[in-house]
Every structure is written in structure tokens, then in C-alpha cells.
Write a protein that binds this DNA or RNA. Structure first.
Lengths: 198, 198
DNA sequence: GACATATGGACAAAATATGTCCAATTGACT
DNA sequence: AGTCAATTGGACATATTTTGTCCATATGTC
């Protein structure tokens, strides 16, 4: 749906570490051009402004992450293993690169200012993917949603919300992973069909 | 000799991490004021310009380091153990804080531009301290400089030069420490008075 | 040669930073 | 309450940097 030629992609890849290093505000188009090994004039041939470039970068990162999620959900394995791996992949792609940076906050704020829609769209798509995966697992009797009186979409929303909360309080390190696994274990136990339980 | 009131010191301590994070060029007086928890107006009461502030910071760092060197050389122990510890202390104080930063190069360049004299003075004082320590050890017969046909000042200069070289090629990590120890072992073996040798 | 693409440099306009100033505020001390 | 010194936000002119645009000139590629 979104097309990005290889030149633009190369520029965005070069721009990311620059934004991480300096933050959005202190990063100049000259900084990015230098990092990408091209002239400032050429840079403006691809992106009309720093805002546009940043949006493209955000879109690229979000697209890659949601792509990873779809791919991960499509693998074999139990539904919760796949969801767990997918959610971790999502965080790895979108959050981890900024996690260690002093400028993470400022960059996140810039993203909310300039690319809120992209972030919102991506979240919608994430929920969609989770919902579809849950619905299919429900149909296959791998899980039993009636046991918790819920619908796939509602459960998908809960999972995403819980991930947000865990990320928020536990950070993005290994603690996040542990929290995710625990949450998934709870979810698995709660939705295992009764005839399969011990 | 150089007086710095506690307020200025507090400001400089707050400024250091800011310079490390953004580099000299991208750091603004507003950034520093914010980090120090004071107003920009107050900041200008202490330092008349960013250059002056940077010089004061450089002076502070160099003074602290040379102070550590003097203290370390004054301890008990063999002359080479003391010199080794002193040189490591010098590097730790002056280089290590910047070592990990992406902006180390730019900051070093800024220092050479704005505070070359301070750096040169400090080096002179370092050589002086080393020279005095070596001369005393020579007088005490702990070492025998005639064995290598040298004078304290010349040997001190060699040590400092070697440290520079080791830092330059080995970096500032644990490799620097290893290189330093090896060099000191060589030096010790070479200058041990013959009547004490195996 | 024709063509598309990249470049350095120049440029005005916009945005930021610098350094200075002052009236108002704060808080400690008498 | 009154004095004093220190700190502040905000205004300000100036200087510097950044932006976004343009073009004449390379630098290949077909």
C-alpha cells in the first residue's frame, strides 16, 4: 500500500540513528544528508521537509513492525506462543531502537505530534491481526472464549492494553518479556477449553 | 590557585552530561540552565558565554584529574605502582567520562579550540609531578636511571608519550589498563638497580 | 548527443540562540 | 516591617543557524 523506493529507504535508515542521537529538534537536514552520504539538495529531492521525512521514517518503522507481527502470527505453534512472539516482535521493532536513547521521550512526543495517525492506524491493524488470530483459534476449539464471556476483538484489545501497561511500568528490557510471558500464561490457562483441563 | 564557588561548580557538574549528550555545538545555554535547575539569566551571572563556561568546565576537569594524580603519587608503594595508578587516575578523570559518547570527537575538538592552553598546562604539570616522583625514587636508589642513561624529565616525558600512544591505539577501555601495566613492568625491569636484580 | 540524477553554492525567509537588561519576586536577616 | 542580595521571567536587538528553493554545473547512462 505504501511505496518507498530504495533511495528513500536508504535515507531513512541513515536518518534513524541521527534522530536517536540528537532527538528530533536538534537534528538538522544537513545532519541527515551527511549521515546518508548525499547532499542536502538531494535530500530535498526525496523529502520536502524534516516533518515529511520523519513521518516517512515513522511509517517505515511501523510498517516493518506490523509486518513482523503478521508474519509471526502466521507461523505454527500454539495461539498464545504466536501472540506472545508477535507482541514481542512489535515492541522490538518499534520501541527497542529508541529505548536506550536519552532522546526517547522527545522523539515519542515528536511522533505523536507529526505521525499520530500512523501510530493509531498501526494499532488498529495490530488489533485486527490479533482479533483474526483469536477468532480462528476459537473456531478451531484451541481456545474457548465463552469460558471468559468474551469476543475476539475484546480480548485482542485487552492484550494490547496489557502490553501497553507492562511496557509502561516495566520498561522495554527483559522485564517486559517476563511480564508478557506471565500474562500469556494467565491468558492460556483462562481460555483453555474445559475438556482439556486437568 | 583557581577558585570556583560552589554555585559555579554545581552548574558545571550539571553541564557536563549535557555537553556529552549533545556535543558542544548543539548544546545551548538554555539546555544547561535547565539541567542546572536555574534560569538562563542566572546562568549568565556566573558565566558570560558558552565558551567561558566550557573553559571553566575543562579547567575543572583538568584540575580534578591533576589533583588525583598528585594524591596518588603521594601514596605509599613502589614508584611504578604509584605512577601506574596515577596515570590511570588521570585517564579516568579526563577521558573516561567522554569515552562512551558519540560526541567525544566533537567535544575534544572544541576543547582544543577553546581550552588548548588548559590542556597544555595540565600536561606540563603532569610531567612535572612524574619528574619529581622519578627524581626522588632515583635519589632513594629505588630506581637507577643511569642504567638507561636518562634523566627524570626525559623518562617522565617518555611515560606520558607512551600513555598517549596506548590510549590512541588501544582506546580507553580495559585494554588501556593492560597496556599501561605492561609498559610499567618493562619500565620497572629496565630501571631496577643492578645490585637488586636476579 | 540526449537524458536523468546528484551536487555545491547562493539565496531570502524563518527559526533559534546569544547576550543584555530590568522590573518583580523571593527569602534570609535585623 | 524593612533591607538586602540573589534569582527570576520576560523583553529585546543581534548574531547565528536552519530551512526550503533555485540553478548552473558536473557525472554518469543509454
Amino acid at each position: 500500500m505504501y511505496e518507498i523506493d530504495s533511495k528513500s529507504a536508504q535515507i531513512l535508515d541513515a536518518a534513524l540513528p541521527v534522530f536517536i542521537r540528537f532527538g528530533f529538534r536538534k537534528t538538522t537536514m544537513a545532519d541527515i544528508a551527511r549521515a546518508a552520504g548525499i547532499s542536502r539538495a538531494s535530500l530535498y529531492l526525496c523529502f520536502n521537509s524534516k516533518e515529511e521525512l520523519f513521518r516517512a521514517g515513522s511509517l517505515r518503522a511501523h510498517s516493518q513492525s506490523i509486518n513482523d507481527v503478521a508474519k509471526t502470527l502466521g507461523r505454527s505453534g500454539s495461539i498464545f506462543d504466536r501472540i506472545s512472539a508477535a507482541v514481542l516482535a512489535f515492541q522490538d521493532g518499534l520501541i527497542a531502537p529508541f529505548g536506550g536513547s536519552d532522546n526517547a521521550e522527545e522523539l515519542f512526543a515528536a511522533n505523536m505530534e507529526l505521525a499520530r495517525d500512523i501510530t493509531a492506524d498501526t494499532r488498529t491493524r495490530l488489533l485486527d491481526l490479533l482479533t483474526k488470530a483469536l477468532a480462528e483459534a476459537d473456531k478451531n476449539r484451541e481456545i474457548d472464549l465463552t469460558a471468559v464471556g468474551s469476543q475476539p476483538a475484546a480480548l485482542a484489545a485487552l492484550i494490547a492494553a496489557a502490553m501497553d501497561g507492562i511496557k509502561h511500568t516495566h520498561g522495554v528490557g527483559p522485564e517486559f518479556e517476563r511480564g508478557t510471558h506471565l500474562f500469556m500464561a494467565l491468558l492460556k490457562r483462562a481460555t483453555t477449553p474445559s475438556q482439556l483441563r486437568a
